[in-house]
Design a protein around this nucleic acid. Structure first.
Lengths: 254, 254
DNA sequence: CGACTTCTTGAACCGAGTCAAGAAGGGTGG
DNA sequence: CCACCCTTCTTGACTCGGTTCAAGAAGTCG
């Protein structure tokens, strides 16, 4: 499993004063953006901060906001009536939360800050895309692609939960997180930040805390990964991918 | 849990020669469609038939089709390298399959006919919506709502797989299937068609065939449901909803 | 340093899987 | 209409992956 170079990852990336590098890199990953579109991204202003545990998108909000993660980790979750929690997905830097990509008419799943989170308000982008303005076709397409990616990741998670063992699930998730951060230009190489507690991992992977602990130990024992405080290193990406049936969601047609 | 009347379910429904009642009812559930839009739906022609097991949307298809189920049950699935299968979701009459609603750039999950399936080609609808034509704003909105509903159901499935027991999962799924068929005007009352084998159920619920069998028996033993050849009756919807934490995805804002 | 969260470990338990074999349906052809 | 075949369903016995409970160790932060 070879890592692409930065130039391969970001064919259209350019320098400039930008608000959120990860966002811009992700939007330009598959689509070339016009100067108008880049300007719109650069003019984004509304910065917000959330403490760990704070709601970013509240459950029954009638006026849904629309933000992009600038830094930190967030997650959509549901707490069941008996207190059990399921974390549906994670949102990393460059990921949208709220109404722009996820049509949230129905979902009763608040988005919560897992670590400290900084976001940028994306309502200017949403308003620009809502009108049939031909200047923003590139952005519209880029957002559709991000939404498709998000959807694909959700399908992968269903497969993880439905048909993979604890050992496979954990490895599969680590590979996914790595791939996403690499795509967003947040990391290079196989070492990457992973600030999740074992409890959070358990609630995402549908396992108990204790079993997550034992599974991580097994992955370490077998030299698949290395764990430091808030960091992971994937030592054997190929072996991990084979054993967990991992394949990076890739565009079949763009 | 009271069942709404037909008039409550379909406030805008009208009579006429239509191709797919379920589709039209679902589209008009939340949005009022103009005569132009209804005409477009009535002019849909391309009818296709699929035998059980046949691919409707093939995996790596470069020219993604876009159809709506007219009758029968389909499902998106992934087969793992060791032969295990995960059925990600079911598509019933009135559900879209393919590129209109699911942005399929990334997903490697073919859609397969589970029973015999009839579909209608939806490319005319897709083309009409792609152009920024103001005549079709209602349809555009209706399709967005269907997509949101689909997305919400997927989130529910993640919760089912991640945090519910076999007994809860099975009850939860039956309630979901019932709710969807009721919304599409396919049924009235608590008896509804359920042509899935226990193997298919197992592959959707992330369980073994044997355990699905025992779980269904438990549901019958406790008078939660009644099973006939291709039919289920939910005998205690409220009890089932409470024990499985089921809540019909409802629009928070439309 | 003290308080709190997070991680780790062991032992017992249990929900769900596996294996295997038989029964019951449900179609098909004679 | 029956005989046959094949799929689907059912049941029992056993195994195992993962959970629960409980207690202690190691971080972490003020």
């Amino acid at each position: 499993m070879e890592l692409p170079t930065r130039a391969e990852i970001f064919p259209h990336a350019r320098r400039g004063r930008i608000q959120n590098l990860a966002l811009e890199l992700r939007l330009e990953r598959f689509v070339h953006l016009s100067p108008d579109e880049l300007d719109l991204l650069k003019d984004l202003a509304g910065r917000r901060r959330y403490a760990p545990g704070e709601d970013i998108i509240t459950d029954g909000a009638r006026t849904p906001t629309c933000e992009v993660i600038a830094s930190g980790w967030a997650g959509r979750q549901r707490v069941l009536s008996d207190g059990r929690r399921q974390i549906i997905n994670f949102a990393l830097a460059g990921d949208f939360v709220g109404a722009l990509i996820h049509p949230d008419f129905f979902a009763q799943t608040p988005t919560v800050a897992i670590t400290a989170v900084e976001t940028l308000d994306m309502t200017p982008l949403r308003d620009a895309l809502a009108a049939p303005d031909p200047r923003f076709t590139g952005l519209r397409r880029a957002c559709a692609i991000l939404a498709a990616m998000d959807q694909a990741l959700l399908l992968e998670h269903v497969i993880r939960l439905g048909r993979l063992t604890a050992y496979q699930r954990t490895g599969h998730l680590l590979l996914e997180l790595h791939a996403r951060m690499a795509l967003a230009g947040l990391i290079a190489g196989w070492r990457f930040p992973m600030p999740l507690t074992q409890e959070v991992l358990a609630d995402h992977l549908g396992l108990s805390i204790v079993h997550v602990n034992r599974t991580l130990q097994q992955l370490r024992r077998e030299n698949m990964i290395e764990l430091r405080v808030g960091w992971v290193t994937v030592l054997q990406p190929e072996a991990l991918a084979i054993m967990s049936d991992f394949k990076l969601p890739a565009p079949t047609h763009v």
